[in-house]
């Protein structure tokens, strides 16, 4: 319930109007949205119980490896609607397969739709969505130089909260089902990050400083 309370209000996209090229405009609008979402996510991470007790190095490391996963939980969550064929990045930024392909994000479309279908099939609750976001963010495989005790405590606390929640609903097995969706999330995030790096390097799509820093962090 603490995580639900601290869940930020959804952001709206600011339509880019710097170019006549439709798919570039979409991409620039998306990059601007992601950059702002990233900023909000960094603020939100500090609200995860135990996060602020980690060292600065640990906090940076978790965010650098988990930010795209955390953001994609939100995109997949919003994209579950009906049998929708769109990726809902924001209420006013919904991209179908053709638009994603034109923007160079065909692979991202496939994977995140897959993820959305999986969340939809298990009828993921808002509580589970925020838990998954927090867990994705704290489940880094990066090697951490500091003592791992506080991170372990943070992860244990989240797992316990998830177990408690599922047990209170009388469906304890859902905790495991939720965790089993994490590999697909990580794979989708890796593909998405790679797609944006490629668009930046090969196609010279301008990317905001914070977003670029995070894309190049690993």
């Amino acid at each position: 319930s603490h995580l639900l309370l601290t869940e930020p209000a959804p952001l709206a996209a600011n339509q880019d109007d710097s170019t006549d090229d439709g798919s570039l405009r979409t991409l620039l609008t998306l990059c601007d949205l992601l950059n702002r979402e990233l900023l909000v996510l960094i603020g939100w991470a500090k609200q995860i119980p135990g996060f602020s007790e980690l060292s600065l190095v640990e906090q940076m490391s978790l965010l650098q490896s988990g930010w795209m996963e955390a953001l994609l939980v939100g995109v997949a969550w919003r994209s579950q609607g009906r049998a929708g064929e769109e990726l809902v990045f924001a209420g006013n930024l919904r991209l179908d397969e053709a638009q994603c392909r034109a923007a160079g994000l065909a692979g991202v479309y496939q994977e995140v739709r897959h993820l959305a279908a999986r969340y939809r099939a298990m009828k993921m609750s808002p509580e589970e969505a925020v838990m998954l976001k927090a867990m994705a963010l704290t489940n880094s495989d990066a090697e951490l130089p500091d003592s791992p005790d506080s991170l372990q405590r943070l992860q244990d606390g989240l797992q316990e909260a998830l177990q408690d929640y599922e047990c209170s609903r009388g469906e304890p097995h859902r905790a495991g089902r939720l965790l089993m969706s994490l590999p697909l999330l990580r794979q989708s995030a890796a593909r998405a990050a790679e797609a944006f790096r490629r668009l930046h390097r090969q196609h010279r799509v301008p990317i905001h400083k914070l977003l670029l820093e995070m894309l190049n962090a690993k």
Binding site: I42, K46, Q59, M60, L63, L210, E213, M214
Partner: peptide
């Protein structure tokens, strides 16, 4: 950390 200036700053300054 020099390479990750913005993130470093955001975390340190309490946003």
């Amino acid at each position: 950390q020099e390479k990750h200036k913005i993130l470093h700053k955001l975390l340190q300054n309490g946003n």
